[in-house]
Simulated assay, not measured.
Amino acid sequence: MNRVLIGDIFYSSNSENLKKIKNLEDKFCCNFLQLRLEKDDSRLHYDRVLREFYIERIYDSSSAHVIKNCPWCGKKFPKELRSEWFNILEKEYNIEPEVGKNGEWVDNVPKEFKSDEWWKKRGL
């Protein structure tokens, strides 16, 4: 079986994989980042709620290193919105979000703030 190297990932060159590689949406700054984020075993993640990219720590998966630039093309990522998320919830809804025992937000957070809807709606 032939393999194709894209970034630092080898893909089998079957027609389904090659089609996926050639037809990537321009969702992120480069195909390498897109492909890495799609891998199940990747420690690189994108949080669409807070618009931040981060690398999960090997020794502690409950914490992470936020990264500001693409590791492959060097392009600066859009500003992460962690502070804005908390500030808007406090100012507009009088909510101070709490994290539950399972690491999820307690139900007092409005639905739009559990996705990227809140920052897209506000043009951030």
Rank of each mutant, 00 (worst) to 15 (best):
12 S>E: 13
121 K>T: 13
47 D>I: 00
73 C>W: 11
7 G>V: 08
107 D>I: 00
81 L>M: 10
58 I>Y: 13
63 S>P: 01
24 L>C: 12
47 D>Q: 00
43 R>D: 14
112 E>L: 02
1 M>G: 10
46 Y>G: 00
72 W>I: 12
8 D>R: 12
16 E>H: 13
63 S>K: 12
25 E>D: 15
87 N>E: 08
119 W>K: 03
25 E>F: 00
79 K>H: 11
96 E>Q: 07
77 F>K: 11
58 I>V: 13
68 K>I: 00
107 D>M: 01
85 W>F: 15
74 G>Y: 04
87 N>A: 09
29 C>I: 09
65 H>K: 12
121 K>D: 11
118 W>P: 03
29 C>R: 11
90 E>K: 15
94 N>L: 06
110 P>V: 08
121 K>M: 10
50 L>T: 04
20 K>Y: 15
46 Y>L: 01
72 W>P: 10
83 S>Y: 14
96 E>K: 15
95 I>Q: 06
43 R>T: 05
107 D>H: 05
59 Y>H: 14
22 K>G: 07
4 V>M: 12
93 Y>R: 02
35 L>S: 03
35 L>G: 04
85 W>M: 03
31 N>P: 11
109 V>S: 02
88 I>N: 01
49 V>N: 01
120 K>W: 01
95 I>S: 05
42 S>M: 06
90 E>M: 10
37 L>S: 11
107 D>A: 06
20 K>G: 00
50 L>Q: 05
119 W>V: 05
64 A>T: 06
40 D>K: 14
46 Y>H: 10
63 S>R: 11
49 V>C: 04
91 K>H: 04
11 Y>A: 09
5 L>V: 05
43 R>P: 04
59 Y>Q: 13
19 K>Q: 10
33 L>N: 10
2 N>Q: 06
74 G>L: 07
119 W>Q: 05
98 E>D: 04
4 V>R: 09
26 D>E: 14
13 S>G: 14
60 D>N: 14
68 K>F: 11
11 Y>C: 05
104 E>V: 03
70 C>P: 01
51 R>A: 05
2 N>L: 06
114 K>W: 02
73 C>T: 13
11 Y>S: 07
116 D>Q: 07
26 D>P: 08
106 V>M: 15
96 E>N: 08
89 L>K: 03
120 K>Q: 14
37 L>K: 08
20 K>F: 12
39 K>W: 00
87 N>P: 00
36 R>M: 14
49 V>R: 08
86 F>V: 03
123 G>D: 02
47 D>M: 00
106 V>P: 01
44 L>C: 03
74 G>M: 08
78 P>K: 08
20 K>S: 10
39 K>Q: 14
120 K>H: 07
87 N>L: 04
116 D>R: 12
23 N>W: 00
86 F>H: 13
46 Y>V: 00
115 S>M: 03
19 K>V: 13
62 S>M: 12
41 D>P: 01
3 R>Q: 11
71 P>E: 08
72 W>V: 14
48 R>L: 00
35 L>T: 06
45 H>A: 01
75 K>T: 15
121 K>P: 04
96 E>I: 11
33 L>T: 03
22 K>Q: 11
105 W>V: 07
39 K>R: 14
36 R>D: 14
44 L>A: 02
35 L>A: 06
89 L>I: 06
17 N>H: 06
71 P>S: 08
78 P>W: 03
24 L>Y: 04
66 V>L: 09
111 K>R: 09
90 E>F: 04
88 I>R: 03
81 L>H: 06
95 I>Y: 02
70 C>K: 07
79 K>M: 14
101 K>V: 04
